[in-house]
Simulated scan of single mutants.
Amino acid sequence: MTSRDDDIHLLFDPPGPRARRRIRVATAVSVLVLTALLALAVRQFASHGQLDHDQWWMFAQWPVLRFLLGSLGHTLLATAVAAALAFPLGGLLALGRLSGSKLVRALARTYVELFRSVPLLLLLYVFLFGLPGVGLTFPVFWQLVIPIVLGNAAVVAEIFRAGILNLPRGQTEAAYSLGMTHGQAMRHVVVPQVLRALAPALVSQLVRLLKDSTLGYVVSYLELLHQAKVLGEYYHAVLSTYLVAAAAFIAVNAALSRTASWLEARRS
């Protein structure tokens, strides 16, 4: 048994026969309830004509699929660009919060506390209505991406900071003993180890970025949810179109979750 398993058993007693029986019963009941709810939902859809052919036929047409795939591509592009900017910015903010300079620490902390508190929707309205009023305008793509970056960088900064503080102090002290400066120790010793440890958490953060991109409708960005609404209204099949869009989001989120689990398994 590994030391990690020993730590787990110190925190949690393994379930006994009665506890395992209760767990099996609870699992069976949960499956039955979910199955019943799913059957009820399908019955309600059928009774209201939502399973009729005229609600679904368009999804077998390539122009419609291309329309939805294109909007999914816009969603993934916004998510990828936001992640490429938010993750490094969050790392810099985390280093700023741990800096030896009081001014740098204060500035980084102010940024993190401010943008963790401000709702993303409010940031979008600032870029949509506020900044153009003072002569600052951005393309639609950046009206969505920049607020996502500003908000998520603050969250990522706290993830990085927790990872750095969780690293054994001996790693940093060993780097100092080799003659490294604080910056060199962070760059060559601390940050690479933290990135490996936090890889699953950062992949999971992509799920939040993906969900944030659905607010693109506020700035008329042609992301998947916005385009599903347009398509559903055009074909008078709003519910079925939203269900297809939801299935696409679930598939992408499942892929990200599996990636995070794979990275966690490799790290352990």
Score class of each variant (00 low, 15 high):
S177G: 15
T241P: 01
L225G: 02
M186W: 10
E158F: 04
F160W: 14
A254D: 13
L206D: 01
K229T: 12
Y217P: 02
L209S: 03
F249I: 13
A185K: 11
A247T: 11
S240F: 00
P192I: 10
S240P: 06
L231K: 02
T241A: 03
Y176N: 05
L210N: 00
V238W: 03
V230E: 04
L224C: 04
I250W: 10
Y221N: 03
H182W: 15
V219S: 01
N166K: 15
V191Q: 00
L243F: 13
E158T: 06
Y176M: 09
G183R: 14
A175M: 07
L195D: 00
L206W: 07
H236F: 15
A185Y: 13
E173I: 03
E233W: 13
A248I: 13
T172F: 12
E223Q: 05
A248D: 01
I164V: 15
L165E: 12
L206F: 10
Y242H: 09
L206A: 12
A175D: 02
L224A: 02
A154T: 06
P192F: 10
P192R: 08
A197D: 09
T241L: 01
Q171R: 14
E173K: 14
V244H: 04
T181Y: 15
R196I: 07
L167V: 13
L178F: 15
L225E: 03
K211F: 05
Y242G: 02
R161G: 05
T241C: 05
A248N: 02
R196G: 10
M180A: 06
P168S: 11
L231Q: 03
V189A: 07
V252R: 00
L225I: 10
A248S: 09
H226L: 11
T259M: 15
R169I: 01
K229M: 03
Q205I: 08
Y221K: 01
E233L: 15
V156D: 02
P200W: 03
A199H: 04
V238P: 02
T241N: 00
V230W: 05
L206Y: 07
S213E: 00
N253S: 15
L222D: 14
A201L: 13
L165V: 12
A185L: 11
P192D: 07
G151Y: 08
A174Y: 07
G183L: 12
M180S: 03
Y234K: 13
G179A: 07
T181V: 14
G151H: 12
L222K: 03
I250K: 04
V189C: 07
F160H: 06
A157F: 03
G216W: 01
L167T: 12
E173S: 09
G232V: 09
L209Q: 02
G151P: 01
Y176L: 13
L206C: 14
G179C: 05
S257H: 11
T172Y: 13
M180K: 08
L167G: 02
G232Q: 04
G183T: 15
T259Y: 13
S213L: 00
V207S: 08
A254Q: 15
V155H: 08
I250T: 14
R208V: 12
V238S: 08
M186I: 11
N166R: 14
A201K: 08
L256F: 15
Y234E: 12
V252Q: 06
I159V: 14
A175K: 05
L243Y: 06
L165N: 11
G151N: 13
